[in-house]
Design a binder for these strands. Structure first.
Length: 508
RNA sequence: GGGCCAUUAGCUCAGGUGGUAGAGCACCGGACUUUUAAUCCGGGUGUCCCGGGUUCGAGUCCCGGAUGGCUCACCA
């Protein structure tokens, strides 16, 4: 990434060619070009022609106009081969002196890897069997001034791949495939939900109060209003206002922003899908979760048995439902009796050498023990249910045990994939929960909720019993594209700013 | 933020114990009208991440810093 364009000799030679084109009266950053085919369509149509008319008859019959980037070039004296890449793939070009003429062929040889051209020609099949465009004419549509990464090894440097994703996408076809799959996943989600009567909505990203999740927000400022705002950490509380409004079935796919660490599983901005359904509960949400995830997997992978990082995951519903306390006993040997109250829970944690704040509640202990001992073991899809009320400030209490909630999270490959519950619609209980969160905040928990009076007002008008669900789309895409890092499924993952090369920091 | 590792040509990478920087691709010049990682002949194009230090001499050793990867902590 040399900011000074003309220092690099490779760039120098391309700039020289640029001048040559200009001298010939050809502006090297051209106009629109009318294509007749994409590379893949041209190949397909030619194959059909061969099948119907026979290979000899088909040759040089099909006229095409294609456009794309030159990604390989093999000169053979008075004839040259190249590959042209467009969004559908690559097709070979064959340019000869015979068709192009003296000047045309000279120009053809002046092309550099990376140049973007439009070609017109006729298809034929070479001796080696590759469908190829015999180029009759071409025009330079955009001159490339920088050399592309290596053609055989591609671009490996992870930092360059993320920082200059366009290069990654040009030279690494499997990367392009990941993002095509990502797009298909999101399209499938929309299709699935709209077919079931859900309304897609868009709620604000700038929140006066960051709510709907336990997370640290980014802060920003509105100048004209002279008002601090937060980038949303979840759309939840706005979507539930829409349930109060009577929209009944809504969903939103969008970005959340969390001011927290970056890791293989975390990007500061990430995509979530949240849905809310009036008159439903968390059992309905589990059903919709497994059905949605299975349907999308089937659509993009063609199977419910997918490979992830060498492990087979079977997404076929129904997935088992296991209450959290039961999971703790089954996977960690911790019985519910050992977690009877705050005191007992803390001493159990101490015995298991799990560090917790001295005033940790029973719910926090349960959550901590679960994450530590159970989560990594949940490889095949499973719903963990009945989360402690202390860590679920927006979920409805269980009828049978008010210390727990009607909440679930599906786990796959040891990862939390989603979060859903029967929504708390009792405004009085909700106020108490917020107050408990405020108390936690005062004790230094920066991720605890803020008081949201406006949301409470909405609840006070009456919200129907509602099931809600949030899915982390990026992690889902990781699973379905067998990607190890969240950065491999985000086009431009967050990267630190490069240090300016001038030595601005004081020596010693 | 802590720990470990990495950073050498446009790209992919080599460079025991300190002694004038290398290969493949790409690029430049030449040959070649069905090649495909084309081939053949000739050419190395460099801020060895940055800044100090040790040394007669540093890509290599020491210190500090930057960026990235993995990992731990926090989170989805």
């Amino acid at each position: 990434m040399n900011p000074v364009l003309d220092e690099n000799p490779l760039v120098q030679s391309r700039l020289a060619k640029l001048e040559q084109w200009k001298k010939q009266g050809i502006y090297p950053f051209g106009q629109r070009f009318e294509r007749t085919h994409l590379a893949a369509d041209a190949e397909q149509e030619y194959s059909r022609l061969e099948a119907s008319q026979g290979p000899e008859q088909a040759a040089h019959q099909l006229q095409v106009a294609l456009a794309g980037r030159i990604v390989s070039f093999r000169a053979h004296g008075k004839a040259s081969f190249a590959h042209l890449q467009d969004r559908s793939g690559r097709i070979q070009l064959y340019g000869r002196l015979n068709e192009l003429g003296e000047q045309g062929y000279q120009d053809f040889q002046k092309l550099d890897l990376g140049d973007i051209i439009g070609v017109r020609g006729r298809l034929f099949r070479t001796h080696r069997g590759e469908i190829t465009v015999q180029v009759d004419s071409f025009q330079l549509l955009s001159k490339s001034l920088r050399p592309l990464p290596e053609k055989w090894h591609g671009l490996k440097d992870v930092e360059l791949r993320y920082r200059q994703r366009y290069l990654d996408l040009i030279v690494n076809p499997e990367v392009r495939q990941v993002f095509v799959t990502r797009s298909r996943i999101i399209a499938s989600i929309r299709e699935f939900l709209t077919a079931r009567g859900f309304l897609e909505v868009e709620t604000p990203s700038l929140h006066p109060i960051a709510g709907g999740a336990n997370a640290r927000p980014f802060k920003t400022h509105h100048n004209a209003l002279d008002m601090d705002l937060y980038l949303r950490i979840a759309p939840e509380l706005y979507l539930k206002r829409l349930i109060v409004a009577g929209l009944e079935k809504v969903f939103e796919i969008g970005k959340n922003f969390r001011n927290e660490g970056i890791s293989i599983k975390h990007n500061p901005e990430y995509t979530s899908m949240e849905l809310y359904q009036a008159y439903a509960d968390y059992n309905d949400m589990m059903a919709i979760t497994e059905e949605l995830m299975a349907t999308v997997a089937e659509k993009v992978r063609g199977t419910l048995k997918i490979q992830y990082q060498g492990t087979e995951i079977d997404l076929a519903p129904p997935w088992p439902r296991v209450p959290m306390l039961e999971a703790l006993e089954r996977y960690a040997g911790v019985r519910a009796a050992m977690l009877a109250d705050d005191e007992a829970a803390r001493s159990t944690a101490a015995r298991l050498r799990v560090d917790l704040p001295p005033n940790a509640t029973r719910g926090q202990v349960i959550n901590e023990l679960f994450e530590r001992f159970v989560e990594p073991k949940l490889i095949q899809p499973v719903f963990i249910t009945d989360y402690p009320v202390e860590i679920s400030p927006l979920a409805k209490r269980k009828h049978s045990d008010p210390s727990l909630t009607d909440r679930f999270e599906p786990y796959i490959y040891g990862r939390e994939m989603a979060n859903g519950f029967s929504e708390l619609n009792d405004p009085l209980d909700q106020r108490q929960r917020f107050e408990a969160q405020l108390a936690a905040r005062q004790r230094g928990d920066e991720e605890a909720h803020m008081m949201d009076e406006d949301y409470l007002t909405a609840l006070e008008y009456g919200m129907p019993p509602t099931g809600g669900l949030g899915i982390g789309v990026d992690r889902w895409v990781m699973l379905l594209t067998d990607s190890a890092s969240i950065r491999d499924v985000i086009l431009f993952p967050h990267m630190r700013l490069r240090e300016e090369s001038e030595g601005e920091e004081a020596p010693g």
